[in-house]
C-alpha cells in the first residue's frame, strides 16, 4: 500500500513539474456519508493491550478543496460513530471467567470528530472524472463510551465512565469525483484515519490510558464547484 502511494506521488510530482497548472482552478465543497470501519488494535476483539473492541458504524464528512490541475489544498470536518463490539467483549469475559456466573455488558459508542487540513495531489481531469489523493493532519476529539460489565456472582467487574479526549490526527485518502456538469458532481471517497487520545479511567492503574483509534471510511456524496461563473 505504501509503495503504491509513493509511486503515485512520484508520478504526480513529475507531472506537476512537467505540466505547470493552468488557471482552471476549482473551489469545491462536498458532503459525503457512509460507513467507518475500525481496523488494527482498535477492532481487536481479544484482551490484548490496546484492543478497542470497536465495530463499524456510520460516518459523515464535509470537505472544502481548492485545487488546480494536479495540486491543491484540502480540508475536512468529519464525524464517525463506531459501535462497541459488546458481543466480542462478552465472549472474552465468558472465556476468562471460565463460565463462572453470568456476565452482562452495557456500552455506548465510540465517537470521533475530526478537523483536518492538508493537500491533495490529483491526476488531470479526464472524462469528467478526477482522481485525487488526500493527505491531511489536524485534531480529533474522541469519545470513549460508558462501559459496564457485571457478573451475577461478583457484581461489577469492570466499569468506565464516558470520557472525551483530544489528540492529533492524521488521514490519508483517495477521492474520485465525477462531474455531472460544471457545477455538480458525485464523489466517492475512501480514507484511513488515525488518532490516539487519552481517556480518564478512575479504576486504571495510572488513572488514564491511551487508545489507538484507527478506522477506514468509505463515503459517497456530492460535490459542488463554487468557482463556476454562475456563482
Amino acid at each position: 500500500m505504501k509503495r503504491i502511494i509513493l509511486v503515485l506521488m512520484l508520478v504526480m510530482i513529475t507531472d506537476l513539474m512537467a505540466m505547470p497548472q493552468k488557471t482552471t482552478r476549482k473551489s469545491v465543497f462536498g458532503v459525503t456519508s457512509g460507513i467507518s470501519i475500525p481496523f488494527s488494535e482498535f477492532a481487536n476483539d481479544r484482551f490484548t493491550w490496546d484492543a478497542g473492541f470497536a465495530a463499524p458504524g456510520p460516518g459523515i464528512e464535509a470537505e472544502y478543496l481548492y485545487y488546480g490541475k494536479i495540486f491543491g489544498f484540502s480540508s475536512s470536518v468529519g464525524y464517525a460513530s463506531l459501535f462497541f463490539n459488546e458481543k466480542g467483549y462478552l465472549a472474552e469475559y465468558d472465556r476468562t471467567m471460565n463460565g463462572y456466573g453470568v456476565n452482562e455488558i452495557t456500552a455506548g459508542n465510540y465517537q470521533v470528530m475530526k478537523f483536518l487540513v492538508g493537500f491533495t495531489l490529483k491526476v488531470p481531469e479526464f472524462s469528467n472524472t478526477e482522481i485525487m489523493l488526500l493527505f491531511n493532519i489536524g485534531y480529533a476529539r474522541s469519545i470513549h463510551p460508558d462501559v459496564r460489565v457485571t457478573n451475577s456472582e461478583l457484581g461489577v467487574i469492570n466499569s468506565m465512565k464516558r470520557d472525551g479526549g483530544g489528540s492529533p490526527a492524521v488521514s490519508a485518502g483517495l477521492k474520485i469525483n465525477y462531474w455531472l456538469n460544471d457545477r455538480y458532481g458525485l464523489s466517492l471517497k475512501g480514507s484511513l484515519d488515525n488518532t490516539r487520545p487519552a481517556f480518564f479511567d478512575a479504576t486504571a492503574t495510572d488513572g488514564f490510558f491511551f487508545m489507538p483509534i484507527d478506522y477506514a471510511s468509505i463515503n459517497i456524496g456530492f460535490v459542488m464547484n463554487l468557482n463556476t461563473p454562475e456563482l
Binding site: 471460565n98 469492570n158 489528540s167 492529533p168 490519508a172 488518532t195 479504576t203 492503574t205 490510558f209 491511551f210
Partner: peptide, 28 residues
C-alpha cells in the same frame, strides 16, 4: 514528516484495563 510528528507525540504508554480489580478464579 508532517504525518510522522503527530504519531510520535502521542506514542506514550497506558492501556485500558478490562478488570477494575483482581478476581481469583472462582472455581478451584
Amino acid at each position: 514528516y508532517l504525518l510522522i510528528i503527530p504519531l510520535l507525540v502521542t506514542s506514550c504508554s497506558g492501556h485500558r484495563l478490562n478488570y477494575d480489580k483482581g478476581i481469583i478464579p472462582p472455581v478451584p
